[in-house]
Simulated scan of single mutants.
Amino acid sequence: MYKAFMFGTPSIIVTKPQVCKKILMDDDNFELGWPKSVLNLIGKKALHGITSQEHKRLRRITTSPIKGKHALSLYLGLIEKVVKSSFEKWNAIEEKPIEFLSEMKKSTFEVIIRIMIGSEIDPQWLDMVEKVYTIYLKGFLALPINLPGFAYHRAFKILTSSFSNYLS
């Protein structure tokens, strides 16, 4: 066992499998949940009060349009279209190297958004949503330091300001 101070709270890190199992199986003392910093970012009512049955129902509703091989095969044309357009954009940038990982993240994000929202999306809107998502994700994974210059502060600031004013 190790004593540590992580994410703003004192913690004990356990490494032995038997002790981990005992802690995780202890329903009386072990509470599942999100850190307070994440709850501040997503809103206090977003995840509280959802029962197991409600969670299953919401999961079934959200995953039913894209479940199974047949349903996924319907999106192959959309995926091809996005990948081809991405390759064409990369090809248009002559004599400049591209950051492959970040460009692939953008293409993947575009595929996911087009599946969820629809195939015709304004590219400027998509860029704005991607920027907000990236800032928000970095805020989720960062230490909850709400001071200017930190990722958590930037993500928290998105909640209180309009997207267009903040991102421009």
Rank of each mutant, 00 (worst) to 15 (best):
M6L: 11
M6K: 03
F7D: 04
P10H: 03
S11A: 14
S11H: 10
I13D: 08
K22Q: 13
K22Y: 05
M25H: 05
D28P: 01
G33E: 08
N40C: 06
L41H: 07
G43K: 06
H48E: 12
I50N: 12
I50F: 08
Q53N: 07
K56I: 11
L58G: 05
R60H: 09
I66E: 03
H70A: 05
L74V: 01
G77C: 04
E80C: 11
V82F: 03
K84E: 15
S86Q: 12
F87H: 06
K89M: 08
I93T: 07
E94D: 13
E95C: 06
I98N: 12
I98L: 13
I98K: 11
F100R: 10
K106A: 06
I112L: 12
R114W: 01
I115L: 14
E120C: 05
E120H: 08
I121N: 04
D122E: 09
W125H: 03
E130V: 04
K131G: 00
V132F: 05
T134H: 02
T134Y: 01
T134C: 02
F140M: 12
L141Q: 11
F150P: 01
F150V: 03
F150M: 05
A151I: 02
Y152P: 00
H153V: 02
A155H: 04
A155S: 08
A155R: 03
L159R: 11
L159I: 12
S161H: 13
Y166Q: 13
